[in-house]
Structures are given as C-alpha cells and as structure tokens.
Design a protein around this nucleic acid. Structure first.
Length: 582
RNA sequence: GACCACGUAGCUCAGUUGGCAGAGCAGCCGACUUUUAAUCGGCCGGUCCUGGGUUCGAGUCCCAGCGUGGUCACCA
C-alpha cells in the first residue's frame, strides 16, 4: 500500500458515527477506520446482501474428494512442466487453469475465527453453526481487491467465499478462493483466540459472543432444541395432545412457590406469572381431552443457583385413566430414549467420546437394558432400565435411623437439627425438612432413582393411599442430586381437594397470604368431574443439563437472568402493580 | 437474604513487604505463496469495578457500595 495515501479522517469529518461513543477504544476505532478505507478503496459496502446457493461449512467439507484434488494437482504439474514452472503467475494463467479444475465449486459464508496472512497466501478459518473450515486465498488466483481484503480481515468479520474444494500441501481441507466478499465488518474486538471467552458473566450477558467464540455453546443449544423436539415426538407418538394454557394467571396455583406479580391496565387487575400449568391442564381432562401435555416456561420468584433460574421450562403431562405408575413408565422410557439417542440427535455434540455402536432405539417394552453411561460433571450416570426405586419412608428410615411415623423422634431430631418452628410445625412438615436435609443425599447420584409414596401432607394435589392416608401416590425422580421429575395419581375428589386447599391457606404465613388464594373455579371443575388420572412434571432444563453434561442451568438457558447493571435506559417510569385489595 | 472468593489493556492472566502499571494474544506498520495458537522486526494500548479512608506514597491495607462465581437459606 502507498505510504502517502491520505487517512480517511482527512476526507471525512472527524465526527464519530452516531453509535460511536467518544470513549470508544482504539481497537474499535481501528476497525471503523479499516472499514472506511475499504469502502473508499475497494468499493465495499460493509453490510452485505442476500446470498443464494450457499452451503454450510460441513456440507462444503463433505464435498471434498481426494481423487479430484490429486487429478487437479496432476494438471498443475503438467502445466508447470510445459511452462517452466512456478505457481500460476498471472490471472490469465489461473483462469485457464480453473477451466480444467475438476474439483467441485462451493459458496460458503462464515465468521472469521482465525487469520494468517503469509505474503502471497492468506489462510482464513471460517466458522458457522456446523463447524470450522479454512479458506485459502492465493494472490494470483483472485482479483487484487479481493486479495487486499483477504489480507486484512479481522477475527469476527463475516465473509462469503467462493471457490473449489481442495486441500493444502499439509492436508488441510479448504476452499481455494476464487472470490471473497465482506458481508459484515465486525466492529467489536473479539475474545482471545486461544483461551476464548471464559468469563461467565460476559458469556451470559453477551451470549452472541460466547456462541461464536465457543463452538461448544452452540452445540449445547442445538442439542437442547433436538431434545425438546424428540420429547414432543415421543409424546405425540403416544397420543398426547400438546396444548398451551395461560402463563398470566389471576391465581397462581399448582405449586407452592412465590410468584412474580404484574398488572393488566385495561382490566385493572393484578396478574401472576404462572408457577405451574397444573390446574389448567386438569381442567382440560374435565373438558374431555384425555392426554395432554405442555412444554413451556414457569416463573418462580425465588433464589438463583446452579439448578434454578427464575424462568424455567417444564413439561407437564396428564393422562386420564392413568396413574403415577403409568407416568413412571413414561418418564423412564422417555429419559432412556433420550440418553440412548443423544449422540445421534447431535452428531457434533461430543467429538471426543465415541460411543457409536451400542445404542439403537430401545424396544417399546422395557426389559432390563445394558448399562447406558453418560457423564455429568464428576459422576457417570447409568441410564439403564429399570431405574432404581425406593420409598420415601424407607429412604427416610435408612438415613435417620427411625421411622417417619415416629412422631416424638421426628420432633426430637428436628429440634436437634435446628429445623425452624420445630415445636409447633406439623410432624410431616418436619419429616419433609429432615428428608430434604439428610435423606436425599443418600441416593446414588449415578443411578436415576424414583422415590415413591411421599407423605400426603406435602402433596396437596395427590390422591392418598386408601389404606394409609398419610401416604400419597406420588413419586419424584432424582438424578445426580437433582430433582428431575415429579408425578402423582391426581386427586379428583372435589370435597377432599377443597379441604386440602382450605387447610393449606389456613397454614399460610403472612407472606404467603399475599399471593395465595383459593381457586374456586378449579374446585368447580372437579365437581363437574375429572377422570382419574396420572400427572407428571419434568424439568426440561435439568434434563438438558444431564444429557449435555452441563452442571449449571445457566449453560442450558440461552439468556439466563442477570442482575441489571444500571445501564438500562427507559422511555418512562415503570408502572408498578397496584397493591393487593386496592 | 447470609457467608466466602473474585473484579488489573479488547481477551486470557501476572503484579513481591505498600514504592514508576506488566506479559501473551488481539490491534497498527513492515517482511513472508502451504499456515494450523504460523513466524520474524518495530510500535500502540490502563477509570487497576465505584466511592470514601489510612499513609509521605495504595492495584496492594481498611470501610461502604456495585457486579460475578461458589456455599447455604428459600424452593409442588
């Protein structure tokens, strides 16, 4: 390049673009300057147009054929012999060579993730959602403007390249560029090319950067999508109908969590973001849909940790004339299917671990299966069927050393463990507290385990055993220390349900009273008559965590909730919800 | 909500007992036609999260705040 070329700032006023703050770093300024130079000298717009006939980088790579490449090299060698040698020295020679080139032509697009300019030869590695692929640019093979562009590309730019599928002398499969076009100039300096972006805060806040800097991130969300699609596929195959019920509810029911509150202006009414779809889905059983499911978000106004995000995705399933045992079979079958197919659902997901041959679609029925191992953090989960089963009471007794029916000892142990309110609280609430603290930890994290026969006192929507009413037809599935699923034989006696609700409301503390109320219409629906049914909830985020070996829920949620950083700009005041009983 | 840790260049990270703010990558200029984190020569780059305090002197020590991570609490 000529040394006396005028700086762009001389031909353009030094005022920054509207979106360029004065404090913008020198690195961003350098990229803006480069774009301005390209626009002036190469006629590049910087923000490209529609591209037809593009293939993915994976497809392009699959078109490479060694025999064609060898044939091409033979042609080159023959020409060298004829014309005293060297690589193509002129554009004319290169053009006539191209006419004889037997290798397939491709057009690819991607983001630049590596760039090595070596004088007359430039190597650019592109990335798209499938994989990385090198584009090689020879000075003699492209228009000079294209070569000048290729020489100065930055990590983060998006380009479209066209050329033949071949390879380098070192065996790297690549596109030998005949043309290169800039389709987006990236103005933001990229993460470090070797270590990538590791700061979790930036990864979550700027997921778009994380996604191109860390290909594994895209793989996880591709896997998530395919897992959810496969779940829908299984549910549809079993005759369930997918439905959508309100996420904004006048009464937040179906669970005991604290809801988010909002407000509808035109109706002048407070609304809650749902904590569960359960009470609406059961209304559908009353209405005559015997098999329904819903996969969507629930919102719980509670703490955040590696297993909890305020909004999370759950699948709820209801099956008329089923019970918690049919839900158990469904759950076990579904999870085993996912665990066995995950590597095929996502071919690129785990290039390191090759577990190809063993797993095919399992039979519909469920004989015991061979071990089906998948890593999750420090443990290796065995998804072999059948999953383990134990009862709540047995697990309690093995952990605490006495029966959960032993009222005095339960109270005594709760006191010793410092459980809040141990003197007045219901015995079964103390049992539940002790169970959560001591018994859950006794489960083998490597073996999915159904814990059955929960206490009725903590299962207000569940049908009790007729011979032992203190126990309910309810189980939870635990895997790797996480609660993955929860199912009941649904309570469909309206009078018992009303009594349970009333009892629960009476026991609510002042805080809970602000958002809990009795859903009279649900009781009315039960009076109309709900068929006996099994009901199930599966935490989709946690299932995805297990299947993709991500130990933080934030790594399976595209945009996990982060605290506001104070740079939020509002057009006007936030309208706060009216206080209750306004 | 409680406790612990962390916050230094665009990114990944050093920073000694309190004594001039550092490296690699990235960027800029130059060389280079088969690289693989290319290499080589030269150069640029800082609100040490924010605000106070102690001190002759604070990235370092103290206090408060903000953000993130972790543990706990909360969590059909």
């Amino acid at each position: 390049m000529p040394d006396d070329r005028p700086e762009p700032s001389l031909s353009r006023p030094p005022t920054p673009a509207p979106d360029a703050p004065e404090s913008e770093s020198a690195l961003v300024a350098a990229r803006r300057e480069k774009l301005a130079r390209w626009r002036a000298e190469l006629g590049i717009t910087g923000y490209g147009h529609r591209v037809d006939g593009r293939c993915s980088l994976a497809e392009a790579r699959s078109l490479f054929r060694e025999d064609l490449h060898v044939a091409f090299e033979a042609i080159v060698a023959r020409r060298r012999a004829a014309t005293a040698g060297g690589p193509a020295a002129t554009v004319e020679e290169a053009a006539s060579l191209l006419a004889e080139d037997p290798r397939p032509t491709v057009r690819v697009a991607g983001r630049v993730v590596q760039h090595r300019a070596m004088g007359g030869l430039v190597f650019v590695v592109l990335r798209d959602e499938t994989q990385d692929l090198q584009v090689s640019v020879q000075r003699a093979a492209v228009d000079p403007a294209h070569f000048r562009l290729a020489e100065k590309l930055d990590y983060g730019d998006i380009i479209v390249a066209e050329g033949r599928m071949g390879r380098t002398n070192r065996g790297e499969v690549c596109v030998w560029a005949a043309s290169i076009d800039l389709h987006v100039k990236s103005l933001v300096p990229p993460p470090e090319k070797w270590h990538g972006l590791t700061d979790p805060e930036t990864r979550y806040r700027q997921r778009y950067v994380d996604m191109y800097a860390n290909p594994q991130t895209i793989r996880v969300f591709q896997a998530r999508s395919r897992i959810v699609a496969r779940i829908r596929n299984v549910m549809d195959g079993r005759g369930f109908l997918e439905v959508e019920t309100p996420m904004m509810q006048p009464i937040a029911g179906g669970a005991a969590a604290r809801p988010f509150v909002t407000h509808h202006n035109a109706l002048g009414m407070p609304l809650f973001l749902r904590i569960a779809p359960e009470l609406y889905l059961k209304r559908l059983l009353v209405g005559g849909l015997p098999r329904v499911y819903e996969i969507n978000r629930n919102f719980r106004n509670e703490g955040i940790d590696r297993q909890h995000n305020p909004e999370f995705t759950m699948m709820e399933v209801y099956e008329a004339f089923g019970d918690c045992e049919t839900m158990l079979e469904l759950t076990e079958s579904l999870l085993h299917t996912l665990a066995s197919e995950i590597d095929h659902l996502v071919p690129d997901a785990s290039p390191v671990t090759g577990t190809d041959e063993a797993e095919r679609m399992p039979a519909a029925v469920s004989p015991p299966t061979a071990p089906l191992l998948r890593p999750f953090g420090d443990t290796i989960v065995d998804w072999a069927r059948p999953f383990r089963r134990t009862t709540y009471g047995a697990l309690f007794e093995s952990a605490l050393g006495f029966s959960m029916s032993d009222g005095p000892r339960v109270r005594e142990r709760a006191a010793a463990a410092g459980v809040e309110n141990h003197a007045q609280a219901d015995q079964w609430l103390l049992v539940s507290a002790l169970f959560d603290r001591f018994a859950e930890a006794r489960l083998d994290p490597a073996r999915p385990t159904f814990v059955t026969d929960f206490p009725s006192a903590i299962s207000p929507l569940t049908r009790p055993h007729s011979d032992r009413p203190e126990l309910a037809f309810r189980w939870e599935l635990f895997v790797a220390g996480m609660e993955i699923a929860n199912a009941y034989t649904e309570l469909n006696d309206p009078d018992v349900q009303l009594a349970r609700f009333t009892e629960q409301l009476a026991g609510a503390d002042d805080d809970a009273k602000t958002f809990r109320s009795l859903d009279d219409d649900f009781i009315h629906a039960l009076r109309v008559g709900m068929p006996p049914a099994g009901g199930l909830g599966i935490g989709i985020d946690r299932v995805v965590m297990l299947m993709t070996d991500q130990t933080s829920i934030r790594d399976v949620i595209l945009f996990p909730l982060m605290r506001s950083t104070g740079d939020v700009q509002r057009a006007g005041p936030v309208i706060l919800p009216e206080t209750t009983d306004a």
